[in-house]
Nucleic acid binder design. Structure first.
Length: 603
RNA sequence: CGGACCGUAGCUCAGCUUGGCUAGAGCGCUUGCCUUGGGCGCAAGAGGUCGCAGGUUCAAAUCCUGUCGGUCCGACCA
């Protein structure tokens, strides 16, 4: 490829709106063009990167038994009604919808369980055809609350989604495991350091799932992990042991109604009590109450359930755990969870917000107290009376509301791992997710096969996704420096660039560059020759920014028959002109092998 | 959905407070010169109905109202 024909569009300055490296550099280097909020045009360079990612992903999923298909982006509402998810996706407003001229409603594919389940029901008739696995790499839409971070969180993106169908849970387990390996192999080949964590199943549903995370400061997910035990989970799901609170000497023997005027927050209450007779009481001795309305879809329709959640005062409620608990309790599917409005709080507690507790006067449908508070001893709890708290409140003795113990606390760094050791926390970018769906969709949609017992059975299903376009952004987050991008060889838009850096009309430089160019092309190396009429400095800056892994410069050494070879980010070295192509090819093979070996090391 | 801020050239931004000549700079782009090792230098040039619609005024990029779009924060811990 000749650089003069590439429409390179590098920018010298950072775009104003870019906050993270991938957004900034992909814009500056001319990979993405913003077409609208959360909408990006993939420029020629990125198109090549995306194609390479897609290809590697397809190879690995195929290797694990997947068959590639393409499904429509427009999905009929009727199909989503069958699975029961239309309401859920409308409630969370995740799905974009359109109407055709007849007024029929369609969703723009946020995922494709319904479509593929319908497909499988039509083509997979017998247990003899199982297991089966179909996948596609196609555009997905999500009506994001707030698109941001460039390619990271967008309205429209490319995703690989795979769906497997089984006659037994064991078969699902096998494919799930094969997919886990395929993912790790794919990420290794893509040059990404990714790891699997336990995850909540969210809107997809199912019995179990893992997310694949790329560790990055800018990641939107928090991961709780313990390298010693191998435990790793998304904070939405993570469980641990909360270390016991210290004892406090000033705790009264019986719950004591105490005036705490105009102090709503935990910190204020503690400050007030410290100054008024309870010098050693701390936040960890208080009972934090958070009141929610949890909307659950049940057989009898959608229900908004007033719910109280209690955790230790110095801790946070894990809303995902809580929402799941309420959904279980109400035997329905979680649609939405939101904090109560102030007037709802007054209705539920008979007090101004800030004084809710599990004692007399709390009227909610569900009440959960974090299991870590069992045997917690005396606490400070809201009295359900404006400007009053109960000091010395013992849950087991004094709680009047009908409550259930439940793990609803947000696990955090410093909590203990149930397998031993201490948990830590870091941030990650979710690039993949795998689910065991079970029969959730097949049962709802009557997708059945005929078994050897002459009976119809719903498919046991799994589903698997990789955010192809997000992978490109995540790769940048892991591979960049002050000069620009540093693509892994496997997904770089081009492998090598040749920069002629002689005086104009220097035929020796020109012919040397052409010679190497021809040789590399012949060897299958994706090579660019920078034939632009620009100063060498401009060219060097551009290619560093674009992030081409290998570079050959033909310039001042040409008189002695030497050219310069450099790996992006490394040192430049002189090589004889005659060896230049071989040097590039060798470096390419070595870099590729390194990634392939990492993939083969996956267990 | 709430709050804050921002819409001026392809990009990054001045100008707006206190209304007043022909609306500016740097980068990028075009042309010519220079001649080539890290965004080099010199010269000339193209490019903007100042987001849109109303209003106030002799006069609006500037003030007011509305509207559309964008960015950031908050999504709630009682």
């Amino acid at each position: 490829m000749r650089a003069s024909r590439m429409n390179l569009a590098t920018l010298r300055e950072d775009p104003a709106e870019a906050e993270i490296a991938s957004h900034r550099l992909l814009t500056r280097a001319g990979y993405i063009h913003k077409s609208g909020a959360g909408l990006y045009l993939y420029q020629p360079l990125l198109k090549r990167v995306i194609d390479k990612i897609s290809r590697i992903v397809a190879e690995e999923i195929s290797r694990a038994g997947g068959l590639e298909i393409t499904m429509p982006i427009l999905q009929e509402q009727e199909l989503w009604e069958k699975s029961g998810r239309w309401a859920q996706y409308q409630a969370s407003r995740t799905m974009l919808t359109v109407k055709d001229r007849n007024g029929q409603q369609f969703g723009l594919a946020p995922t494709a369980e319904e479509v593929v389940t319908d497909y499988a029901a039509n083509v997979v008739k017998s247990y003899k055809q199982l297991p089966a696995c179909f996948f596609q790499q196609h555009t997905k839409f999500r009506d994001e609350i707030r698109p941001r971070f460039g390619l990271m969180r967008v309205k429209e993106f490319i995703m690989m989604d795979a769906y497997s169908f089984h006659a037994s849970p064991e078969s699902l387990d096998e494919t799930y495991e094969a997919m886990r390996k395929a993912y790790l192999r794919a990420f290794a080949r893509l040059g990404l350091t990714a790891f699997a964590v336990e995850a909540d199943t969210g809107a997809i549903g199912g019995t179990g799932s893992h997310e694949f995370m790329v560790a990055a400061e800018v990641g939107e997910d928090a991961i709780i992990y313990n390298p010693a035990s191998g435990y790793a989970a998304n904070v939405e799901r993570a469980a641990g042991i909360v270390p016991k609170a210290s004892a406090w000497a000033s705790a009264p023997a019986a719950a004591q109604l105490t005036l705490t005027p105009k102090v709503g927050t935990i910190a204020d209450v503690m400050g007030f009590l410290n100054a008024n007779g309870f010098p050693d009481v701390k936040a960890e001795h208080s009972l934090k109450c958070v009141l929610f309305v949890v909307t659950v879809k049940t057989d009898k329709g959608d229900k908004g359930i007033p719910t109280a959640a209690f955790v230790r005062g110095d801790r946070d409620v894990n809303e995902v755990k809580l929402g799941n608990a309420v959904a279980r309790g109400a035997r329905g599917a979680l649609l939405e969870i939101r904090p109560m409005h102030p007037d709802e709080v007054r209705a539920a507690t008979g007090a101004e917000p800030g004084f809710a507790g599990p004692g007399e006067g709390l009227t909610v449908e569900f009440c959960y107290i974090d299991a870590a508070l069992k045997d917690a001893g005396p606490l400070v709890a809201g009295a359900n009376k404006t400007d009053h708290h109960l000091v010395g409140f013992v849950i087991e003795r004094d709680a009047k509301a009908k409550f259930r113990w439940e793990d609803i606390v947000r696990t955090q760094a410093g909590d203990l791992d149930t397998r031993g050791g201490v948990l830590a926390e870091k941030r990650g970018i979710e690039v993949g997710h795998i689910f065991k769906l079970g029969t959730k969709y097949s049962a709802a949609m009557k997708a059945e096969y005929l078994g050897p017992d002459q009976k119809l059975h719903p498919f046991i299903m799994g589903c698997y996704g990789i955010g192809t376009s997000r992978v490109a952004a995540a790769a940048v987050e892991q591979h960049w420096d002050a000069d620009g991008l540093r693509w892994p060889i496997s997904i770089a838009p081009y492998h090598c660039v040749i920069v002629p850096a002689g005086k104009p009309g220097d035929t020796a430089v020109e012919s040397a560059a052409q010679e190497i160019y021809a040789k590399l092309q012949k060897a299958g190396i994706e090579v660019v020759i920078d034939d632009r009429d620009a100063k060498p400095g401009v060219k060097f800056k551009d290619w560093d920014l674009v992030g081409i892994p290998l570079r050959v410069v033909c310039g001042r050494g040409i008189a002695e028959g030497k050219v310069e070879f450099k790996v992006r980010g490394g040192e430049s070295k002189d090589v004889p002109l005659a060896d230049a192509a071989a040097t590039v090819i060798e470096a390419f093979i070595k870099a590729t092998e390194t990634l392939d070996n990492a993939a083969d090391a996956v267990v």
